[in-house]
Structures are given as C-alpha cells and as structure tokens.
Design a protein around this nucleic acid. Structure first.
Lengths: 364, 364
DNA sequence: TTGTAGGCGTTATCAG
DNA sequence: CTGATAACGCCTACAA
C-alpha cells in the first residue's frame, strides 16, 4: 500500500480529517473519503465527463468536508498554464502602473488570473534578472509598463516564450505590440476645447522637452491651432522639467511674452503651477486666462482653485487592452504589432469653464 | 542581458537552441546532452552532492547550451514552497502599497521571491475571492496592506495555512501581527521640532477625524506640547476631510481664532492648502507662520513654496519588516503578535526652517 | 561518484 | 459510468 508510511502518525483517514492541521488535503484524500478514484474525483470537481449525480454529490460533499483546495501548482504543471501574468515596470511612483494593472486584472477576470508585479527601478541588470525569474515561473504573458519617461524603450527581444505587450511606453522594435495613450490627440482635444470657448491666444507650458509625452502633447495642440490659422504661443521651448518651479517660471515668461488668454500645460502639476502664478498676479481663472493640464491626476485636478480641466489618458483601458491582447495570443491568435494609440478623454472643469456655465465632467 | 559572448561549442549549440523552440528544455534534455542521468544533472545544477568536476562541467555546459531554465513550478511542487508572497490591499491610489511592496521585495531578496499584488478595492467579497486564489497558488506568506483609512481592519482569521502580516493598517485581532507607522510619534516630532525653533503658538489642521491617522497625529503633537505646558491650538475639531478645500477653510478658521505662529497639518495636502491660504493673506512662511505636513509625499513637499517640512512614515521599512517577519515564520520561528509601531523620520525643509539657516534634510 | 525509482498533486487517456 | 495508469518537471533517497 502506497500510503503505508502514513501509519506513522497513527491516524486513520477520518481522524486526519478532524485533526486536519498537518497537511492540506489532496484530491486523493477527497477521493478516499468519497470512496472513488482520483480520476473520478477530478472529473466531479471540475464538472467534466459523465458521472452519476450521486457520485458527483458524494465527491463534492467530501471536498467540502475536507475543505479541499486544489493546488494550482500541480494543475499548472499538467496544463502548462499558470494563470499568472507578469508586469514589469520602471515606474517608481506607481502612478501609471497601478491603473494599468487594475485594468489588466479586470480584463483577465479577477480570480482566474493573478499578476506578479516587479519594479526594475530603472536598472537594466535588475530588469533582466526579474525577467528571468518571471520566465522561470512560467508566466502566461508579460506586460511591460514604461516608466514616467514614456518614450520608446528597448525591446525585450523577439524570442520570449510568452506573449509580450508594451504599455504606456512603446517598444523600440516596431514588430512588438505597444499600447500607448494618444498624446497628440490629448493636446489636440485641449486646443479645440479652448478654441471653442473663444480663446484665440493659447499658450503652452511644456515639461522636460526630452520626453516624448511633452513634445507630443505640444504638437497635438499646435496642429489643431494651425488648422484654424492660429499658432501655439510659446511653443518650441527647448529646456524645462516637470517641477512646479519650472512651471511657474515658464508661465511667467509666457505671460510676459505673449499675453495668452489660455494656457495648456504638459502636466497637471505644471498647470497647477500656472494657476499659482496667475493667482499671485491677480488674474482670474478662467475669465482672464483659462488653464488646462494633462493626466487628470485626481489628487491635483480636484484640489486646485478652480478645479482643473485635464485630459484623462484612461490608463485602465490601456491595461484592459494589453490584457486582452495577451489573452488573444494565448488563444492562438497572432499577437499584433506596431504602436496602438488609445483615445484619451477630456475632463472639463472650472479652470476652463466657469462652474455656473456648464456642468463639467467631474470624477466618475 | 545574459547574451553577449555565448562561446563554447559554437554552431552546434545554436542549432540546438533554434531547433528547440517548440518545447522548453527540461532537466531530462540537459541530462541527455550531458550524457548523465536526471538525478546527476539535478545535483550538478544545484551544487548538491559529490560529483566529479568533469561531470559537473559537462552538465553546466549542456544547460548553457540548451538555455535551460528550471521550472519553478515543478520545483515548488516538490519543495512545498513557491517563493511567492501575496500582497492584499485596498489602497486604490497605490500611494501606500507600492513603497511597502518595494520594501518587501528588497527584504525578500529580489529574484528569489516574487510578489502577487491584488487589490480588493474595498469589496469584502472580492477580498475573500482573492484570498482564496492566493491560497490555491500556495503562496508562502501574505501581507495585508490597509487602505488609506488606516484604522484597524477585520482579521482574515487565525487559521490560514500561511504566515500573515498586516501592514500600514493593523488587524482588529490583537493576536495577529501588525506593522504600522507610529503616527503619534509623527505628531510629536513635528511639535518638538517647531517648539525648538521657538514657536509657542502651534496650531493643528486635521483631516477626516474619523481616521485614526488624523487623531493619532493630533494626539502626538498635543502630548508633546502638554509636556511643555502648552496647548495645541485648534485641536479637537470633530469635522473635516482630506481635501485642500477643507484644509483652506480649517486654516482660515485657525488663523482667525488663534493667531498661531506654526501650523501642523495632518497631511501634506492639507499643509499645502495652509500654505496657499497664508500666501493669499500675505503672511510669510516660515517667518510669520511655520508649516509642516505629514507623509512626506515627494510630489507635494518638493513643489511647494517654500518646500514643505514633513514626516516620512518610511513605508519601505514597513515593507521590509513585514517581509522579514514572514521570512522568519517560514524558518519556523513563531510569528509575533500585536501591533508594532515603526519609527518615523522628520524631513526638515524650508517651510519651517528658512533655506539659508540650515541645510534641511532633503530627499535622500 | 553516478544511476534508478518514487513521489509531489493534478489531469487526461484509456481500459473495464 | 468509473478506475487504473501515465504523464507534467523536478528533487531526493537509496542502490549500484
């Protein structure tokens, strides 16, 4: 008898059940208690195959009694699928990766799929190490989330044994599939919004111009204005960063040089800086100058005076899309390639439209 | 990456690799290529047992040639350890959970242990479901990270098959181990800091008073002042929330009622609101009124004018401590119990000490 | 020093 | 309808 050595602990099956503590019950225990074979128990528990109702009932009862939990480990060993998706990121702050992760969890079906999150903290060696660990764990797919600098990042290579999707920041390799927010559209939406409000002297406060996001947002706004025969004031600045200090300086310069009646900032923090400067100067927002930002970061947009119009990159939707792509790849469909730009959403608040005018799009 | 100089037996190896795309190589493949048995290969790869250097070399070479990666799945099935720690949270924003997760990753030894992050989003049913999934995955330990409301949360129960540590927010069950920041100490540190600077009329701007964090921070500051025969001005307010709008209102009221020469706010956002109000009123910071916040949230403290003195809860250290506890429990030591309050750290900046006075503790 | 055999918990494939 | 049996990939006794 295979289980002979278990006599050592001096307990029969049922006592084991009651004592229950030592070892988690396996399907073999369930089968034994139900008086069937492992194979039958497996079928009953998974609703597969043809079974007598009576047998199925006995098995389920036994499982319940033992508080049986199948080991996903053993299951994965057989099926070759772990139900784990890896998320590799460099986003120290987590502002971008978390919404994406949530979206992915949603799409993957909470409960059925788990997500292992690892942060390489910008270190390539660390990233390679973490990738290696993820692959050893046999993840079913990988989502690579770029850091705050969302320019193209090096590809992990074409020969990984699992489907890979790049989110937020695209891969440098055009054969990879990348899902990114449409920053050009974001700038365009804001410019059009302000134009429709009658603003004609629209200025731009950029962030670090070495970031693709800053440049794309600027070019989108500039393009929208160009189509209307106007120009984006203060565009083309070749220095800057993402701090409010810089935002204040850039705003002051913009105001002095161009007397704008609207300001588009490359981020919500920069927009906040613009609001502060305008306030210091006694200019009314939005009456004298309208202000809009990017990212729709709730902690900022709902706390400024007035609340800030911004563009929501809908990162959860990025995550959902990325997860869906992995899911499809797992189902055998070839994974796409190239950069997929996802639509963004305008969130209108009091910094462009006075609160008593229209009901802006507030937090959902 | 690992590639670069893959010398050795040259083409033969590469062809094997190319051919081998279909199925990842197993230890059996390595053994076959090396001309030894699986058992021997295993020993060689893991540095166990007594082997000829020659044999070991052949096995390692074969493994390299095949680009062999052991399946942690199979390994876990044997060892009973997965090297996965679950992190269960309700922190939608991720402001708290991420630093804790990083700390845990550090302590657990990046690469050796992975973290599955799940967010129950405040839904108890969802939480139960996620817990179930985590247990089926045979996680080695569980860290429960409370949401922004860091009051005690319901225990997951005493009969889980893995060590559990509650971080940030404690468990309601005193027999569980909880690791939380010492908010009382935080309030105390700020009060003492301001006192040493000669401030005697120190006021408090609280957040939502139903949050333990707000009350604890207030009580710490009040206690420190009481020891010095002073009183915390504006303490005991029974309404409020965490928005800047509230912070501005509370600050205005505090200023009018008590004429403080220093303000401690229950969060950095509230402190920022206080700064805005003081600026509107033309009061100088810190000369007329010093201001300090809580959380040391970099996105705020380094962007205000002047930069904001705050208290760093050192969440990474929470995460490290939590991971260490799980690690110890895994090694057989009984896991502790009760609430462990972790020291916090004062981060002094220009809002309490003028920049030309001393060199404040800036970002590390 | 090395090889063989058994088992970890599950599922799938056949017999019966 | 149900029960053996053989995988899945690895590790560890124990035997040679």
């Amino acid at each position: 008898m295979i289980d002979g050595r278990r006599e050592g602990d001096g307990m029969g099956a049922d006592l084991q059940v009651v004592a229950g503590q030592g070892r988690r019950p396996t399907i073999a225990d369930v089968a034994r208690v139900a008086g069937v074979s492992k194979g039958t128990a497996s079928k009953a528990l998974n609703g597969r195959g043809e079974l007598t109702d009576e047998t199925r009932r006995r098995v389920l009862e036994a499982a319940e009694e033992l508080d049986f939990r199948p080991s996903s480990l053993a299951r994965s060993l057989v099926s070759g699928r772990t139900g784990i998706v890896g998320v590799l990121t460099n986003d120290l702050e987590g502002r971008f990766v978390l919404p994406i992760l949530m979206g992915a969890e949603d799409a993957l079906g909470a409960g059925r799929v788990s997500v292992i999150l690892t942060d390489a903290r910008g270190d390539a060696v660390r990233e390679a190490q973490q990738l290696r660990t993820l692959l050893e764990r046999q993840i079913d797919g990988l989502i690579v989330v770029g850091g705050p600098r969302n320019d193209a990042r090096p590809s992990l290579g074409r020969d990984l044994p699992v489907p890979v999707v790049y989110a937020y920041a695209p891969s440098e390799d055009p054969r990879d599939l990348s899902i990114v927010p449409d920053n050009v559209m974001a700038g365009r939406l804001l410019a059009e919004h302000l134009w429709e409000l009658g603003r004609r002297r629209i200025g731009f406060v950029g962030g670090d111009p070495t970031y693709g996001a800053s440049r794309a947002r600027e070019s989108g706004a500039a393009a929208a204005l160009a189509e209307r025969g106007a120009e984006l004031l203060g565009a083309g600045v070749t220095a800057g960063d993402w701090t409010e200090r810089w935002g204040r300086a850039a705003t002051a310069r913009l105001l002095a040089a161009h007397r704008p009646d609207a300001i588009i900032a490359a981020s919500d923090m920069l927009a906040r800086a613009a609001l502060d400067v305008l306030r210091d100067l006694g200019r009314r927002v939005p009456e004298d100058v309208a202000v809009a930002g990017h990212d729709d970061w709730s902690v900022i947009v709902t706390n400024t005076r007035p609340e800030l119009t911004s563009v929501d990159a809908r990162l959860e939707s990025l995550g959902r899309r990325a997860a869906a792509a992995i899911f499809a790849a797992l189902a055998g469909e070839p994974i796409g390639e190239g950069v997929e730009y996802r639509p963004v959403r305008l969130a209108i608040r009091g910094s462009t439209v006075p609160d008593n005018w229209a009901s802006g799009t507030h937090e959902p």
